[in-house]
Design a binder for these strands. Structure first.
Length: 291
DNA sequence: AAAGAGTACAACCGCCACCCT
DNA sequence: CAGGGTGGCGGTTGTACTCTT
């Protein structure tokens, strides 16, 4: 079968399985840092490992890759997972794109071992995110019950019970992109920030009100899903400057503030904390400088 | 202290889609 | 167009650790 190690052109004997030793980690890490990945098929041989390429790839992606967060999920991360799972279902890779430093495997494990049970305990069907014994579908909100503060602020409910992207949507940490933690700045515009900008470009209303109708909910779901689907073919470093400009425009910076940032970017130094850039981390700027 | 149960997480498996020849 | 190679994904299993009795 193509999915197992057989399709990584390797002899089947001497293929080690199971947990990775620190020595193996060291070999793989130093090889990739030195030479990059190239073809995973050739990595084990070149790195002196008795593993299949697929196993090496998995170890790198899920464990060794720089920028990965370790440790337990924060309340905010849990809220985001809950929300995105309601939108995407078990599309862990999609969900992971919105959680910088977390891998799809990690999120999947966390869901299966913890969040799922939590929901069931609360009487919520983890598949549908609706109360298990609920009969009236109209009463179900798109935001999970026990609405997380962050999400509430980002997607606040209007008087009709509809969903509105509020001003705080931009400011919420939902917009801390992949570039935070210093990973994958190439994928920055895959995140909800771009989706929001897209929405604002395509609609005249600055708040883009989603009333609580099936049609509008479907519209929003579809929109986000479509945007996410496009995520693999997104930006490159050259877009970063435009991105900064966009953010500054949104933040309504004046000309002098913008010039100040340009100076900092040019001089590659300065105290970035003093800038009103809640969405941008120093790591993002670091990635920008590094380019 | 030991054994069994439960939990968390790492790793594997099988399938699919894409690319290249 | 067909077929092989490869990377990526989601589901599942295995294992180490923790908790409970």
């Amino acid at each position: 079968m193509a999915g197992d190690c057989r399709h990584f052109k390797q002899k089947q004997h001497n293929i080690k399985k199971g947990l990775w030793s620190p020595e193996e980690d060291e070999k793989l890490f130093s090889y990739i840092v030195k030479f990059g990945v190239g073809s995973w098929t050739s990595v084990p041989h070149r790195a002196g490992l008795e593993r299949c390429g697929k196993s090496c790839r998995l170890r790198w992606v899920n464990y060794l890759r720089p920028g990965l967060k370790r440790g337990s999920f924060s309340k905010q991360e849990q809220d985001i997972i809950l929300y995105l799972h309601q939108l995407f279902g078990n599309r862990w890779a999609q969900i992971a794109t919105q959680l910088p430093g977390r891998t799809d495997n990690e999120i999947k494990n966390f869901w299966n071992s913890c969040l799922k049970k939590k929901l069931i305990k609360q009487g919520i069907d983890p598949n549908t995110h609706k109360p298990i014994f609920a009969s009236n579908e109209c009463n179900q909100n798109i935001i999970p019950s026990g609405k997380p503060v962050e999400l509430q602020e980002a997607f606040h409910m209007n008087n009709n019970g509809g969903l509105t992207l509020g001003d705080n949507f931009m400011k919420s940490n939902l917009f801390v992109g992949e570039s935070d933690m210093g990973i994958d700045p190439m994928g920055f515009d895959c995140n909800l920030f771009t989706q929001y900008k897209q929405i604002n470009r395509e609609t005249s209303s600055p708040s883009f009100d989603f009333s609580n109708t099936l049609a509008s909910r479907t519209m929003m779901d579809t929109f986000i899903k479509e945007e996410s689907r496009e995520s693999s073919s997104c930006t490159n470093y050259s877009n970063m400057n435009n991105l900064f400009a966009e953010i500054c425009k949104y933040e309504e910076w004046n000309a002098s503030e913008w010039q100040e940032l340009q100076k900092v970017l040019a001089s590659n130094e300065g105290d970035l904390d003093s800038y009103p850039m809640g969405l941008l981390s120093e790591n993002l700027l670091g990635a920008f400088f590094a380019n």
